[in-house]
């Protein structure tokens, strides 16, 4: 990581007096896979479109590799590749012809070997001469990835690249994103699939109603926002709960009549167990409860309702 790939300061876009993006700030280090999260209508696509020069910000400033997104596009265009929302192609042409047209539209006349390399990279070998209208959504998404890489960009914007993909396609896309990251590219990934983001991204920003509400390294965010805790299965439930609630630092809470969640450091766990056992409570299980990006996201955006508070299966490490 040698520098900052993308910055945004006070970036704002207002449509008919309604702010789609409001005073957004971003600092994205070069070479990171950066997750850009937010509920529907949070302003993710609007932000990407502004950074790509497709729409003009109402206020604020943004740069890509230090070049202003509005006034220095000729310095930005050669380094940027993007999929914005769904992939768009000329369906009456083949995948290969689409790639050629897009490369030439950007002023490049690439050798056939480069197209072959990209087709191989995205796994479309054998179908590159078929018309795009015969492609499945997953194939179109992969062709979209090939199109973003035509100019060997330093930054790749991927807006919901796994939308509409089946599980196998999602895994393939995840691997492609990881490979882009391994090649040293900065990947700006907007996605609803928080599990996917957690798998591939080192840094994230969470936006809501056009405002950045959290930004930083994934592991730091998960550590600072609550950190690890434990889930205890004990009976009788009411007595166990009453005992644990006598210790306010544990913040004992439960969402069912079965598991009790506590926040505690590992060295405090034996003491807690001792108290329960001394009070004649049977302890069946104690499992480490690790926070996920999904639970963090749902909690801070308040979009999950009751489900946001539920201890999800994947957050219980070492559970049944």
């Amino acid at each position: 990581m040698s520098g900052i790939a993308i910055t945004a300061e006070g970036l704002t876009k207002v449509y008919k007096k309604i702010p789609a993006v409001n005073n957004l700030s971003l600092h994205i280090p070069e070479g990171t896979i950066y997750g850009f999260l937010g509920p529907n209508g949070a302003g993710k696509t609007t932000t990407i479109r502004m950074l790509l020069g497709l729409i003009r910000p109402t206020a604020g400033k943004a740069t890509i590799f230090g070049h202003d997104i509005l006034h220095a596009r000729k310095h930005i265009a050669p380094y940027v590749g993007a999929i914005v929302e769904s992939p768009a192609f000329y369906t009456y042409m083949s995948g290969l012809e689409n790639l050629r047209v897009l490369a030439r539209s950007g002023g490049q006349d690439l050798p056939q070997a480069r197209y072959d390399e990209l087709i191989e990279f995205v796994g479309l070998r054998g179908r590159e001469k078929d018309k795009v209208k015969t492609y499945s959504l997953g194939m179109k998404q992969r062709l979209g990835v090939a199109a973003t890489l035509l100019n060997d960009p330093k930054i790749v914007f991927l807006d919901e690249p796994t939308n509409g993909l089946d599980p196998a396609g999602t895994v393939e896309m995840r691997n492609l994103i990881l490979r882009m990251g391994q090649e040293g590219r900065t990947v700006f990934l907007s996605s609803h699939l928080l599990y996917e983001v957690e798998q591939v991204c080192s840094d994230v920003a969470i936006i809501q109603k056009g405002v950045t509400i959290k930004q930083g390294r994934v592991r730091d965010l998960l550590a600072t926002e609550g950190g690890p805790g434990y889930a205890i299965e004990a009976a009788p439930f009411e007595r166990a709960m009453a005992i644990l609630q006598e210790l306010p630092q544990l913040k004992a809470h439960s969402f069912d009549q079965h598991w009790i969640n506590i926040n505690a450091e590992p060295q405090d766990v034996p003491n807690v167990m001792r108290k329960l056992v001394q009070a004649d409570v049977d302890v069946f299980q104690v499992v480490v409860r690790q926070r996920s990006l999904e639970s963090l996201f749902l909690e801070i955006t308040g979009t999950g309702g009751a489900s946001a508070q539920q201890p999800l299966a994947e957050v219980v490490v070492g559970g049944r």
């Binding site: 479109r49 790509l52 020069g53 497709l54 596009r73 000729k74 930005i76 265009a77 940027v80 993007a82 914005v84 929302e85 769904s86 992939p87 768009a88 192609f89 000329y90 369906t91 897009l102 539209s105 950007g106 002023g107 199109a147 100019n151």
Partner: peptide, 18 residues
């Protein structure tokens, strides 16, 4: 209608070229 401007425009600095 194909929404292809979004894949074309980021590739060039000057829109008028298109």
């Amino acid at each position: 209608s194909r929404d292809t401007w979004k894949v074309l425009l980021p590739r060039r600095a000057r829109r008028s070229d298109f």
